[in-house]
């Protein structure tokens, strides 16, 4: 029988987690950034309270200030967690009996033009820092050229392309996946546009997002 737990019932066993220390650190860092953003947003909000008549800011005051305090507490909590995780990582590394292995730095040698094209098409695996940079740059330029080339030409299609292609590329999807995504996303956008058009919400000629429509 498992261990008894409390509250509304049983919680899952957190010891099941089997995460790499570096992953924990990056999650903690994201947590700190998120908490900081929350504090900034709430701070900005609260700083505006005095700009408005007291009659319309009672409720924002009642909720806003305590929420900011809680957000600061959350930020502090996340910072403490990050500090602990970093400390644990250091002590683990220092106490480790495993002999340290020196990993050679990735090559910064620039790939040739042919290699660059192959990298962009995904037919050559990315192994070095330079290759990664080339691929990132290539995809960014490609996206920008595509966007500018089609701007103002096809209305809502450009928006679909920007979303369906831009999104995957930004998240590191392989370029080979783009045609499939493009067709699927554009078809979906067209179907939705027609449905919305039929329901009388938007006239089709203006496009969905108004980007690229003169």
């Amino acid at each position: 029988m498992g261990k008894p737990v409390t509250g509304l019932g049983i919680e899952l066993d957190d010891s099941q987690s089997n995460k790499q220390p570096t992953t924990v650190i990056s999650v903690r860092l994201l947590g700190v950034i998120f908490a900081a953003v929350l504090v900034v947003i709430l701070g900005l909000y609260d700083s505006r309270i005095s700009h408005y008549p007291a009659g319309v800011t009672l409720f924002p005051r009642v909720i806003g200030l305590p929420t900011l305090v809680l957000a600061i507490a959350y930020l502090v909590k996340e910072l403490v967690k990050l500090a602990k995780s970093t400390q644990n990582l250091k002590s683990t590394a220092e106490n480790s009996n495993v002999p340290k292995v020196t990993v050679p730095l990735p090559s910064h040698e620039q790939p040739t033009a042919k290699e660059s094209v192959e990298l962009l098409l995904g037919s050559r695996p990315i192994n070095t820092v330079a290759q990664t940079r080339i691929v990132g740059l290539g995809l960014a330029v490609g996206l920008a050229v595509l966007y500018v080339a089609l701007l103002g030409v096809v209305g809502f299609l450009i928006d679909s392309i920007a979303l369906v292609v831009g999104g995957p590329l930004l998240f590191g999807q392989p370029i080979r996946a783009v045609p499939v995504l493009l067709v699927a996303g554009t078809a979906l956008a067209v179907i939705l546009s027609v449905l919305i058009h039929l329901s009388g919400v938007i006239p089709l000629s203006t496009g969905i997002f108004h980007i690229g429509v003169s």
């Binding site: 699927a184 919305i196 997002f209």
Partner: peptide
Amino acid sequence: PQIIGPALIVIGSV
């Protein structure tokens, strides 16, 4: 999911 993900963004944006 490679198809569903972008599709979700399109549907959500619409």
